[in-house]
Nucleic acid binder design. Structure first.
Length: 563
RNA sequence: UGCUCCGUAGUGUAAUUGGCAACACGUCUGACUCUGGAUCAGGAAAGUUCAGGUUCGAGCCCUGACGGAGCAACCA
């Protein structure tokens, strides 16, 4: 029971919720909350985007508003439809919907063009004929003000004429740009007559060859927000310095009380991985990983293939919160989130990764009995299943030691152990190969100790998982570890993240043995291999050739003791 | 040496807006257990970057240092 005080205590709100509620209480924008998620279709979504998605869609949901999906497709040289589809799939997978509000910045190219023309007519924009380097040099530095372009005071007529001809394809790429006339002496570099249109002759994935000029991000984003009636434009911290420019354009556009507002929050960084699209793309291109959906990638498709659930990702995002502090979040919290989720939903099964043959010498040859096992002790509704048991079984190599240390609760010569759901067995002898490796272990069982019988309650130090040798299915199991050995591989000034790649991030195990109930397992099905961890069926898996990915291991205090 | 933003246990966040610094993960004990998982009970760990100031009272307000990040793409 909660104390009354606790119930009354308001949930603490993060700074964005506070800002939204303040706007609402002041009656801004007619009490509407309307957000947008604005991905550029130039790569796959990663868990950092999930943080933004949860906020954009989450705030809309919380305040009875809407959230648009808007592709920020203003640069045809980098963007592609391939990415549009994957982005939509990933957002839906996370459990969010934009209903019929799927928009593109390119939907507004006409309006944006008109707005640019208006700015020219108001004397607030001009065509500059200078080269990129000259413009850049003239811009000054962070400590020195910039200089005026010689074309800054062209006549409105000449600007209009040039701008139209730019779009007719009359000029080469890079030969002319349209600039906003703001302030070359501004301490904010983004206000020093920013370029708002450039000539690009690459066909656009939606508008084809209709346009020869394309708006820059700063000239498209805020305006798109405005056109869509967005009230809260939530983005990451690095856009903080863009805000004055965002507001400047909105000022020129406004014709009522409505105005969109940009608020910035901290992006998600995860330990032992990289998050920039560029770096992820490099890993894919250089075949460091098998693709965007390699289970070691922090992409949503990678995490999905690894066995992460949408719930676990949303829970994780919820746990880390939104602030303005640039933080680096511990992967162990992500792992906590998936363990917590899978613990309650994943059925338990027996799978042996590195098999060791065990022969129960006093168990009748040729006999098979079915043993009943609980599918999930955390969820009775998942029921029970039958697992075959027989004279020859496999156990985990790690569960046997010829010469064990003190606290080893598993099988060893002369020691007793419980075979989960079956019998208590005692190790009598073993067989080794020429290399001195144990190849077979001989045990005797006590028929009176079958699970459920009174004598089964005898205290035994350890309980092992097992599979009946005659009934097993062969499987391949892929064990994943962190992609980088360094907590913050991108955080070294003079070192490339690639120098910290973990050479052991993938271990492929073949000849693994799993229980027969797994025969019909389909890709993305999730299981707990008892005592080992959570595993997910890979897309490569086929009937007769099962492939599992290890999502995350179980917490292993025994392994920790041995460190 | 310009502008903007940020400094709270190891990490991520809270602190009802000026009232004895809390929660989660991680970590350490112990209990329980037919998963060395889960669960349960308990512990250690920051005096809020520093120095001044305002105040009866400051993590919160002010000033100044120090530290970190972002910004000078015809990228987003």
């Amino acid at each position: 029971m909660k104390e009354p005080e606790e119930i009354l205590k308001p949930e603490s709100q993060h700074f964005i919720e506070q800002a939204i509620e303040k706007d609402l209480s002041e009656g801004k924008n007619g009490g509407r909350v309307h957000t947008r998620f604005p991905p550029e279709p130039n790569g796959y979504l990663h868990i950092g985007h999930a943080k933004a998605i949860c906020l954009d869609f989450g705030m809309a949901e919380k305040y009875n508003g809407k959230c648009n999906l808007r592709f920020d497709d203003t640069n045809p040289t980098k963007e592609d439809v391939e990415y549009v589809d994957s982005i939509k799939e990933d957002i839906q997978w996370l459990g969010f919907t934009w209903e019929d509000r799927e928009f593109y910045a390119s939907d507004y190219f006409g309006k944006l063009w008109d707005f640019a023309v208006t700015l020219i007519k108001r004397g607030l924009a001009y065509v500059d004929d200078q080269s990129a380097v000259t413009i850049s040099e003239q811009k000054g530095t962070t400590t020195q003000t910039g200089n005026y372009s010689p074309h800054r005071d062209r006549s409105i007529e000449e600007n209009l004429d040039l701008f139209f001809r730019m779009n007719e394809g009359e000029f080469e790429e890079g030969s002319r740009v349209l600039r906003a006339k703001i302030n070359m002496a501004s301490p904010n570099m983004h206000m020093r007559d920013p370029i708002i249109y450039r000539i690009l002759k690459t066909p656009h994935h939606r508008t084809g060859t209709k346009w020869k000029v394309y708006p820059m991000y700063d000239f498209a984003h805020g305006q798109s927000d405005y056109f869509e009636g967005i009230t809260h434009s939530l983005c990451t911290l690095e856009f903080e310095v863009h805000r004055p420019l965002y507001d400047w354009f909105v000022d020129q556009l406004m014709d009522s009380d409505y105005r969109p507002r940009q608020i910035e929050f901290n992006r998600l960084n995860l330990t032992y991985t990289v998050m920039s699209k560029r770096k992820l793309l490099e890993l894919v291109k250089d075949a460091v990983v098998s693709g965007w959906d390699d289970p070691r990638m922090p992409t949503l498709c990678g995490l999905r293939r690894r066995g992460y659930t949408p719930e676990s990702i949303r829970r994780f995002v919820d746990l880390i919160g939104y602030t303005k502090v640039e933080a680096i979040n511990d992967v162990s919290l992500l792992e906590y989130a998936i363990r917590e989720n899978l613990n309650e939903r994943a059925p338990r099964v027996f799978g042996v990764l590195k098999p060791l043959r065990v022969i129960i010498t006093n168990y009748p040859e040729g006999k098979t009995e079915n043993v009943e096992l609980i599918n999930n002790p955390e969820d009775e509704s998942q029921g029970k299943r039958q697992v075959p048991f027989s004279r020859e079984i496999y156990i985990e190599q790690e569960d046997f030691m010829e010469d064990p240390p003190n606290k080893f609760f598993r099988l060893a010569p002369g020691q007793e152990v419980r075979l989960k759901g079956a019998y208590i067995v005692r190790c009598q002898s073993l067989k080794k190969n020429d290399a001195g490796e144990v190849t077979e272990v001989y045990c005797t069982y006590d028929p009176e100790t079958h699970s459920g019988l009174p004598l089964a309650d005898r205290k035994v130090k350890g309980t092992l998982h097992w599979v009946s040798a005659e009934h097993v299915l062969d499987a391949e199991v892929r064990l994943y570890d962190r992609l980088f050995n360094d907590e913050d591989p991108s955080g070294h000034k003079d070192k490339d993240a690639r120098e910290f790649l973990n050479p052991d991030s993938l271990a492929i195990l073949t000849g693994c043995k799993v229980e027969p109930s797994l025969a019909s397992a389909k890709p993305l099905d999730k299981f707990q291999f008892q005592r080992l961890g959570y595993f997910c069926v890979d897309y490569d898996s086929k009937a007769g050739k099962l492939v599992f990915n290890r999502t995350v291991s179980l917490k292993d205090t025994w392994a920790k003791l041995n460190k």
